[in-house]
Design a protein around this nucleic acid. Structure first.
Lengths: 146, 146
DNA sequence: TTGGGTGCAAATGATTTGCAACATC
DNA sequence: GATGTTGCAAATCATTTGCACCCAA
């Protein structure tokens, strides 16, 4: 659960700061930005430099312990529960996130890429929508908002 | 072909600058950054402000005439040939881009999202890899570079 | 001990914005 | 002629970095 240290790569040390960051991001319900996380950490009583948060977030992401998402001009991070490759279905309205597993996309991507002669293929896939609650809310208040 | 004006939304004017930008980006072989495009325009003899390039790129993208891609801390734009939804397979090395069509991902995404109760689903999918040439080049020079 | 980690503040770099001059409709 | 657009420069803002000090191994 919180024993991320074991999963950490060899080259990096397990400091208090990293522990705090790692812990805090797991509490977050969805994706959070570095700044957001830093603020939360400060409120939680920790005293960590913003740069340290950035540095660790990057390191943790590199080690595969975090998922990264780019949105609105900034990177958002999220604790990555499973080491398995997966995607996200994020609610545009409330931010609710569902982790989606499945090899359909992977297989398809690999097939297409191979057909084109590409190797070392990776991909990024994110899905956005309105979750059930937000859809209901939207319909209840106004037919269409744009 | 180059009659993008017709496709332009009603609220925006078709200025020389927008025409130049629109034209230049169509010549680009792959994705280009705003700065890159601006530089090319200057070289091509046009005198356009960087801000104008940014503004137009955004507008054009909003109108669906351009594809946007975020990579390496900046947005990259590319002329969107077909109005049809498609994805890209980009070579990490040389930037060669292949447009990929197919409904596999779309169908899958819609199915998953619906199952989770989401509506108004959209998604982003980009694929990266090494194209045939770059793969060959990489193998020829060194077994593995990292 | 000792090299990686941290904190701070300054630096960077892409993108945005205020505002007066200007072109398009 | 009115209004959206352009240009420039200054302003933002997320992220990075230099460097002296500190701590985990």
């Amino acid at each position: 659960m919180d024993n991320k240290k074991a999963r950490s790569a060899g080259g990096s040390r397990w400091t208090q700061q990293r522990a705090a960051i790692s812990e805090q991001i797991e509490k977050a319900p969805g994706f959070v930005s570095a700044q957001q996380l830093h603020e939360e950490l400060m409120h939680a009583g920790h005293s960590i430099g913003l740069a340290t948060v950035y540095r660790n977030l990057q390191t943790l992401a590199d080690e595969g312990l975090l998922d990264v998402l780019y949105s609105d001009g900034q990177n958002l991070y999220r604790s990555c529960a499973s080491p398995a490759h997966h995607h996200h279905l994020v609610c545009r309205q409330c931010g609710k996130t569902v982790e989606v597993y499945g090899t359909v996309v992977e297989d398809w991507a690999r097939k297409i890429a191979t057909a084109e002669g590409f190797t070392e293929v990776t991909h990024t896939l994110e899905m956005y929508g309105l979750c059930a609650e937000c859809t209901a809310a939207a319909n209840g208040q106004n037919q269409r908002q744009e």
